[in-house]
C-alpha cells in the first residue's frame, strides 16, 4: 500500500513538472508584441511601475531572456520558493492576492458540494431502485437537462427572475451597497445572501453528472449476485438497499468525491465571473483578460498541480476505501 502511494506521488510530481513546463511554454509562446503591448499598457496606468521595470521583472522571474529550459529552471526555482512576482492587474504580490481571494472560492465550492451530495445521492439511488419507472425517467431527464444547461444561460435566467423581476438579490458582487454600515452578523448575512444565486447555479450545473454517476453505479451493484442472494434469503428491501447495495455504491462515489475535493480550490471561473464573486475564478479571469502574466502563470500552474493532486487522491482513496483492491 505505502509503496503504491509513494509511487503514485512520484508519478504525480513528474507530471506536475512536465505540466508546468507546458504552462511555461505557453507563456513563452505568447507573441512578443502581445507581451510588450500589455506591459506598455500596464506601465501607463497610474501608480504602476515603469515599462522597463516590468520587462526586467519578467526577465528575472521567467528567464525570458534565456533559453526555454534554463528559463524554466529559473522560474521553477523561484516558484518553489514562493516567489511568483507581483500581479500587474492588482498591484499586489501574486501569493498575497491568492490568499485574499481563495476563501470565497472554497466556501462557494464546499456549500455547493454539500448541496450536490444531499440532492444527487438520494435521487440517483431512487432512480436506480425504480429503473424504467416514471420517477427514473423524470430524474434522468432532469439530470440530462442540468448537464445540457449552459452556466451563463442559467445564471442570466436566475438574475432575470430573482434580481430584476422579483428584486430579491443583487445582480453582482459578494457584498451589498451598505455592507460597511452593517454589524458583524449583518455582514455575514449580507455575504450569505449574495452567495445564494451562485450556489444555486453551480449546484444545478453539477447536479446532473453526480446524479447519473450515482444511478449508474447503484444499478451496477443492484445487478450483482450478492444482491440477488440477499433478496433470496428474504432480507427486507430496505435493508438490501441501505446495507448491501448502497455501501458498495459508496466505493466509486467516495473516489469521485475525493477527486472533487482538491478541486474546491480551483474556483468556479464561469460562475464566479458571471456573479462577480471575487474568488480565485473571477480574479484570474480578470487577470487573464487583462494580460496579467504573473497571476495567470501562477493560476495555470496551480490548476495543473491541483488536477494531478485530485487524480492522485482519487487513486489512493480508491485503494483505501475498497479492501478488495490489492495493488502491487
Amino acid at each position: 500500500m505505502w509503496k503504491f502511494i509513494v509511487r503514485r506521488v512520484l508519478l504525480a510530481i513528474i507530471i506536475i513538472v512536465f505540466g508546468s513546463l507546458i504552462c511555461y511554454a505557453v507563456i513563452r509562446m505568447l507573441p512578443t508584441s502581445y507581451v510588450e503591448r500589455v506591459a506598455r499598457q500596464r506601465s501607463t496606468m497610474p501608480g504602476s511601475k515603469g515599462y522597463q521595470y516590468i520587462l526586467a521583472q519578467l526577465n528575472s522571474y521567467y528567464g525570458m531572456d534565456s533559453s526555454i529550459l534554463v528559463g524554466f529552471a529559473k522560474w521553477g526555482g523561484n516558484a518553489l520558493r514562493g516567489q511568483w512576482g507581483d500581479s500587474w492587474f492588482f498591484e499586489l504580490p501574486v501569493i498575497q492576492k491568492f490568499a485574499d481571494v481563495i476563501g470565497y472560492s472554497v466556501v462557494l465550492g464546499s456549500i455547493t458540494l454539500f448541496f450536490e451530495m444531499v440532492l444527487c445521492i438520494p435521487l440517483g439511488v431512487l432512480a436506480a431502485r425504480k429503473q424504467y419507472s416514471r420517477t427514473d425517467y423524470f430524474i434522468t431527464v432532469f439530470a440530462l437537462a442540468c448537464i445540457s444547461l449552459p452556466t451563463f444561460f442559467l445564471a442570466t435566467i436566475l438574475k432575470y427572475i430573482f434580481s430584476i423581476k422579483l428584486g430579491w438579490f443583487d445582480l453582482y458582487g459578494i457584498v451589498g451597497r451598505f455592507y460597511e454600515q452593517l454589524n458583524a452578523f449583518g455582514k455575514f448575512g449580507d455575504m450569505a445572501v449574495h452567495m445564494i444565486m451562485p450556489i444555486v447555479t453551480l449546484t444545478f450545473i453539477n447536479l446532473g453528472g453526480l446524479m447519473r454517476f450515482t444511478r449508474t453505479n447503484m444499478l451496477e451493484v443492484l445487478n450483482a449476485d450478492y444482491i440477488r442472494t440477499a433478496r433470496a434469503k428474504g432480507l427486507p428491501e430496505r435493508r438490501v438497499i441501505s446495507k448491501h447495495a448502497f455501501r458498495n455504491t459508496l466505493i466509486p462515489l467516495i473516489t469521485y468525491l475525493s477527486y472533487l475535493l482538491p478541486n474546491l480550490f480551483a474556483g468556479a471561473m464561469i460562475t464566479e465571473t458571471l456573479f462577480q464573486i471575487p474568488g480565485i475564478g473571477y480574479i484570474s479571469f480578470q487577470a487573464m483578460v487583462g494580460g496579467d502574466i504573473p497571476f495567470t502563470m501562477f493560476y495555470v500552474t496551480f490548476l495543473t498541480a491541483l488536477t494531478q493532486i485530485s487524480l492522485m487522491v482519487a487513486d489512493v482513496m480508491y485503494a483505501v476505501v475498497d479492501p478488495r483492491v490489492r495493488i502491487q
Binding site: 507530471i15 506536475i16 505540466g19 507546458i22 504552462c23 505557453v26 505568447l30 480551483a266 471561473m269 464561469i270 484570474s284 479571469f285 487573464m288 483578460v289 495567470t296 493560476y299 495555470v300 490548476l303 495543473t304 488536477t307 494531478q308 487524480l311
Partner: peptide
C-alpha cells in the same frame, strides 16, 4: 492536466 478554460481565455 492542462487547464482548458485558462488556455482558451488567454
Amino acid at each position: 492536466c492542462i487547464p482548458q478554460w485558462p488556455i482558451l481565455i488567454i
